[in-house]
Nucleic acid binder design. Sequence first.
DNA 1: CGGATCTCAGATCAACTGAGATAA
DNA 2: CTTATCTCAGTTCATCTGAGATCC
Lengths: 159, 159
Amino acid sequence: MSGHQLAMALRRAYLAIHRQTNDALVPTGVTADQFVVLCELAQGASKTQRELVDRTASDSNTLRAMLVLLERRGLVQRRPHPTDGRAWSVALTAQGRRTFQKLWRRSDKLRMKLVEHLDQDSLRHFIALLSDLVQRLGDGAGKSRRPVGAAAMGIQSSN
Amino acid sequence: MSGHQLAMALRRAYLAIHRQTNDALVPTGVTADQFVVLCELAQGASKTQRELVDRTASDSNTLRAMLVLLERRGLVQRRPHPTDGRAWSVALTAQGRRTFQKLWRRSDKLRMKLVEHLDQDSLRHFIALLSDLVQRLGDGAGKSRRPVGAAAMGIQSSN
DNA sequence: CGGATCTCAGATCAACTGAGATAA
DNA sequence: CTTATCTCAGTTCATCTGAGATCC
């Protein structure tokens, strides 16, 4: 057992989820990565791009590109931030909320399958293992253009 | 605790490893995904592209593209398969083996950090959780163009 | 024949670099 | 002045579809 095997197992698992999410959403024309963004936006209030970068673990340039696509399709709206003149305030449009419901339903079975045969404690433990791993890696961070940012830590509403 | 949170934790962890691997390897011009391919090739005998597709969890077209890049750089060689006329037999070149050593050393600290604070049992358990997840997903497989393939199961040399 | 392996063209998205505008 | 947020241009890689050649 080695770090390499852990990395490979993680790769396998992530790619499997990513592909099956894409497969499930392909009739809607929304990608799995875009879905991740919409999920964060669907949790209550509007967010700045910076917050979305932290919460979706995306690159800021990548996130912008995705928002441009989502905006062009009318799922997302960006308005000037009320107090911070540098920032955008990003939110779902009405159509975006409707589309998100559809996406969420379409991916429902997949999420069920993810946690099948896992009781609450195992699931909690599993997530803790993953979070610990991220934290361990994050400490010796490279030259990431993301100087941490408070929202990166896992405060998630319950969905 | 929900399947969504598990998926997000997995995403975070995978992307963190992927990025840090890329960062560690960037002076060599080899990407993290290419490194995955080289790792499999470094384990003993030569392999067909089909085997590599299974073992690296890559798409077959994607794999071909990566092999073309690696071949162009002289790290990899493809010869006709001795017995199966449809298949290629892919192997590292001498330079490929040297480069792989370098890559492996460069990513050593990262692998160490991955398993820091995990004893053998925890690591084994972690990997089992990930593998189980893949298997659960794999059962209800979509229209993946990969009709299973025996090598997909985890027979790994110890590295 | 059916099925497996691989090739090729083409498209799309994600990811990243580096430079810069603007505001805190 | 420094730092943070976001924009923009440009590049590369990974991914996938769909069609087809070739061989088992």
